[in-house]
């Protein structure tokens, strides 16, 4: 990819603007992810409300990215690396918006969970999972700015660890529900939260794949390592 300036410098400013917007979105999503998990673990309802309220800003940024991208395509007719920059910005903004929605959903559920006896270890595991996903997102966005396909490939491989944490938590929650039906409501909510974070990991992976496309011009060909075995689980021991 060529990083020299355009003859038409306004084009450079346009491309910088949309990339700055997704970095800003990314920062908000990272904070929302960590805060949602912390609010769950510490039963901090004020923090949970803050996370719910912050999603509006992420959505507004996505709308702004969409408008800017449409304008750039219409006015500048980007090609080659410029075209890939514009396309990846659009897709990454979409992924970040979804991640923001998941964080908001986690914050909503934490309000309900605060009314139940904590399920031992679950909130801590979820926080570890959220930390892992936040680090993936941070690295994916760093890889984007640095045009670093090696780091992006590494992020893509790390989603497997998120899947593994999700698998074990799935079994733990299943055990708690079988032992005592009064745990079912809390465990259901906790499971949705874990699933949300697992999906956030998938979006971070999508972003890292966009980085690979941006740098190399093609999507990674080899299948990505996945370890979500929950679709086949019939009992906690299976």
């Amino acid at each position: 990819m060529n990083t020299d300036g355009h003859i038409l410098s306004a084009f450079d400013r346009d491309l910088e603007t949309i990339q700055a917007l997704i970095m800003k979105m990314g920062g908000l999503v990272e904070v929302a992810t960590l805060d949602a998990a912390r609010a769950l673990e510490t039963r901090d309802e004020d923090l949970a409300r803050l996370v719910r309220d912050s999603d509006g800003a992420i959505d507004a940024l996505e709308a702004q990215v969409n408008d800017e991208v449409a304008r750039i395509i219409a006015l500048r007719a980007p090609t080659a690396g410029d075209l890939r920059t514009v396309l990846t910005v659009l897709k990454i903004a979409g992924s970040l918006e979804r991640m923001g929605d998941y964080a908001k959903n986690i914050a909503k559920r934490s309000g309900v969970l605060a009314q139940f006896t904590p399920i031992e270890g679950a909130a801590g595991t979820i926080r570890r999972m959220a930390k892992q996903v936040e680090q993936m997102l941070k690295d994916a966005l760093d890889a984007y700015i640095r045009r670093d396909a090696v780091l992006a490939t590494d992020v893509r491989a790390r989603d497997r660890e998120v899947d593994q944490i999700y698998n074990s938590l799935f079994r733990v929650l299943l055990t708690h529900m079988l032992e005592d039906p009064r745990n079912i409501t809390a465990c259901m909510h906790l499971h949705f939260i874990a699933k949300n974070i697992e999906r956030m990991g998938d979006h971070a992976t999508t972003i890292s794949e966009q980085v690979i496309y941006l740098v190399t011009g093609s999507m990674p060909e080899e299948a990505r390592p996945k370890d979500d075995r929950t679709p086949y689980v019939a009992s906690p021991k299976s």
Partner: peptide
């Protein structure tokens, strides 16, 4: 790439 993207 330089030429088609309008770079020097």
């Amino acid at each position: 790439e330089s030429y088609i993207t309008g770079r020097i």
